[in-house]
Amino acid sequence: MGAGAKADVAERLYEVLNELVGDKGIEVETGGLGGMMDVRLRNWGGVSVMVESGNNGRG
């Protein structure tokens, strides 16, 4: 695993992602970042998510 963002940066990215997904009409439910959540998933096929930080792994 690579290095993660600092908590304040990670939380803002989490909020922005939820807003963008919600703006597309997809139902989004949230919890506290880092908190325990009861998550159910219905898998209809594969999903890939690519996140590029632009720092080429240099933290």
Rank of each mutant, 00 (worst) to 15 (best):
V49A: 13
L20A: 09
L17I: 12
V21N: 04
R58L: 02
G25E: 01
D23C: 04
K6N: 08
R40I: 03
W44V: 02
G32I: 03
K6V: 10
N18H: 13
A5S: 13
G54K: 07
E29A: 06
E52T: 02
A5V: 10
M1D: 05
V47F: 10
V28M: 05
G4R: 12
G4S: 10
W44Y: 08
Y14P: 00
G57V: 01
W44C: 10
K6C: 06
R12H: 15
K24V: 02
M50Q: 02
V47R: 10
V49C: 15
V21T: 10
W44E: 13
N18M: 14
S53H: 11
E19C: 03
N55H: 06
G54W: 05
N55D: 14
G31I: 01
L13F: 11
E52Y: 11
V28K: 04
A5Q: 09
D8Q: 03
D38M: 04
E29H: 10
L17R: 05
R12S: 12
R12I: 07
D23A: 11
Y14H: 12
L17S: 12
V9Y: 06
G57L: 00
V21E: 02
S48M: 14
M37W: 03
G32H: 06
D23L: 04
G22H: 00
G54D: 05
M37C: 06
G35V: 05
V39G: 03
E27D: 13
G22E: 01
L20F: 01
G59I: 08
E29F: 09
S53A: 13
R58W: 00
N18P: 05
G34Y: 15
D38A: 07
G2Q: 04
E27G: 07
L20S: 09
V9E: 12
W44N: 09
L41K: 15
V21M: 09
G2S: 10
G31H: 01
L33N: 06
R12T: 13
R42I: 11
E29G: 03
E27R: 02
V16L: 15
G35R: 05
M36L: 08
M50D: 06
L17Y: 07
G31T: 07
A5L: 13
G31P: 01
G35P: 00
W44L: 10
M37G: 00
R40F: 05
G57H: 01
G22I: 03
Y14L: 09
V28P: 03
G46Q: 14
D23F: 04
G34F: 15
N56D: 08
Y14G: 02
A3I: 11
A5I: 08
V39F: 14
R40L: 04
